[in-house]
């Protein structure tokens, strides 16, 4: 799974080459699509908070953050995104019923293949990072 994400550009080029050379291997395409993980595969409760962008720059990345409302690292993460002026959405997972939360965490683990710790960032629905790592985030988002 990580291999696909890390070599995403390569696979896009490969498919592009197959299409332009008129020899599309659909089995390969299907395999790749099946392996690509996405936030869309997770049922997210409705208590999402949307934060508007505070700068006029074009933002190409869609940012979603899973957080704990009481967590210092999560507060730092929100402040960092605010300072950068990004538009993003977040969900404080501790503010939803515990059964829903456990289900959500299990789905995150199943889809992204990692036991999440918070803040948990998802960029463009497929790239993720577990924990507060602004240096990595900057690269992911830009």
């Amino acid at each position: 799974m990580d291999y696909i994400i890390n070599h995403f550009d390569f696979f896009v080029d490969l498919i592009d080459f197959q299409i332009t050379s008129n020899c599309v291997d659909f089995s390969l395409f299907k395999t790749i699509c099946g392996l690509i993980v996405s936030l869309d595969q997770i049922k997210i409760p409705e208590n999402i908070v949307n934060v508007e962008a505070t700068h006029d720059k074009q933002q190409y990345s869609e940012i979603f953050l899973f957080t704990i409302s009481t967590c210092m690292w999560c507060k730092k993460a929100k402040r960092w995104l605010n300072r950068q002026g990004f538009q993003y959405s977040y969900l404080d997972i501790d503010l939803i019923p515990v059964e829903d939360k456990n289900k959500l965490k299990a789905e995150i683990q199943e889809v992204f293949g990692v036991k999440p710790r918070f803040p948990f960032l998802v960029v463009n629905k497929i790239q993720w990072d577990s924990g507060y790592n602004p240096d990595i985030w900057e690269e992911m988002i830009n």
Binding site: I68, S69, T70, C71, M72, W73, I93, D94, V98, K101
Partner: peptide
Amino acid sequence: DLITGLQANFNRLGYYNCPCRDSQE
């Protein structure tokens, strides 16, 4: 942030759950 997080957890759960870790309530 840490003290207000602990305070919120105590007042909601009845104990000082670590503010940066998810509780099972």
